[in-house]
């Protein structure tokens, strides 16, 4: 009886968003009389940071401090239409919609400021600190707040903008069956090192290393946060979680969190991440977003590492000790495979 080490690798070419119906997201932005901006979205933040990312994108495009932007995702009944928070589409789709809305709102903001300063709107710039001034003449200035008040109470203008992002519809070529369902792809490669016990069938993940190419990283700490949490979920899917262990037979399914297995804080594997930025031509400031691909490559990498360790190819998840022991028995013992890439 022994423990065998194995290494597995997986790469992922990951589409951002989907295609059906152009996958639209809409955003509406308006200024309040105090010169602060409200962004209305109907997609919601699940904890991945969509509100923070769209807030950064709105502030950058409007040219105002980030503290002066509030993102409101309160109500999909009354908010602008959005397909929703899924398919790793948040940063890319909502970010683009927010840029479009913020550009329009910025145009009205500069027109209102131009009227107050009696200059041409095309000559105005923002300093990102709440001021608008004539290019090259910082003293010829007005605050965003004073501009919003003038627009509201004097000029009778609404400083607002509408934005929608829609990807080009792609139809299937009748001759070749070819289509282009997506416009932006993110990429990753992940290596997992495991140890498999041929007596118990248990797998321990010893460590993981990955490289993720996500376009422009709009919020580096949140990207890291998603990648660390997603990798944990990947290990959990690969080795533990299932509502129906003998599907389609419903027997022996877990009934609560005592029986629905997930790794706990004591089962963490050291994980090293490298982020590569290759900005997407159609992404908001080049961003694509991590999303579901944080977890995806972990599953095949762990499955490959198990095969590398004991020669058992498990094709259905999760890779339980029972499946590994049955495989080892069918092979007449553990069959460690050749390993590349140095010592584990």
């Amino acid at each position: 009886m022994a423990r065998y080490k194995g290494r597995g690798m997986a790469s992922v070419n990951y589409p951002i968003g989907m295609n059906l119906g152009g996958d639209p997201s809409q955003a509406l932005i308006h200024s309040n009389p105090d010169g602060k901006f409200t962004v209305a979205l109907s997609a919601i933040d699940l904890g991945q940071g969509m509100k923070q990312v769209t807030r950064q994108v709105a502030a950058e495009t409007l040219g105002v401090p980030i503290e002066d932007v509030y993102v409101d995702t309160a109500d999909s009944d009354t908010g602008p239409h959005d397909m929703g928070s899924f398919a790793s589409r948040g940063t890319h789709r909502m970010g683009n919609a927010v840029i479009a809305a913020a550009r329009e709102a910025r145009g009205v903001l500069l027109e209102a400021a131009a009227e107050e300063l009696e200059v041409n709107a095309a000559d105005l710039v923002t300093d990102g600190k709440g001021n608008i001034h004539v290019k090259g003449a910082p003293s010829r200035a007005i605050t965003v707040r004073a501009t919003a008040q003038a627009a509201q109470f004097k000029q009778g203008k609404t400083i607002a903008g509408r934005g929608i992002f829609l990807i080009p519809l792609s139809s299937v070529d009748p001759e070749t069956g070819e289509m282009n369902p997506n416009t932006a792809f993110a990429h990753a490669c992940l290596v997992a090192d495991v140890e498999v016990d041929d007596e118990t069938g248990e797998v321990s993940v010893l460590g993981m290393s990955s490289a993720y190419e996500l376009g422009r990283v709009i919020n580096p700490k949140m990207v890291e946060q998603q990648l660390v949490g997603g990798a944990w979920m990947g290990i959990s899917h690969a080795l533990y979680e299932t509502p129906e262990p003998y599907y389609p037979n419903p027997d022996h399914g877990p009934r609560d969190f005592n029986e629905y297995l997930m790794p706990g804080p004591g089962d963490l594997a050291p994980y090293s991440i490298t982020i590569l930025e290759r900005p997407a031509p159609d992404g908001p400031f080049g961003g694509k977003g991590p999303g579901e691909m944080c977890a995806n490559p972990v599953l095949p990498a762990v499955a490959n590492a198990v095969y590398n360790a004991v020669g058992v190819r498990v094709n259905d998840l999760p890779i339980t000790p029972e499946k590994i022991l049955r495989g080892i028995r069918a092979n007449g013992g553990a069959k460690p495979q050749a390993r590349r890439g140095g010592a584990l």
């Binding site: 949490g229 990798a231 997930m262 706990g264 804080p265």
Partner: peptide, 17 residues
């Protein structure tokens, strides 16, 4: 620390943070 939070489930962070 790990022992202290072992009774608490987190789905998002992977516990490390």
């Amino acid at each position: 620390v790990i022992d202290a939070i072992a009774g608490n489930i987190c789905r998002c962070t992977g516990y490390e943070p």
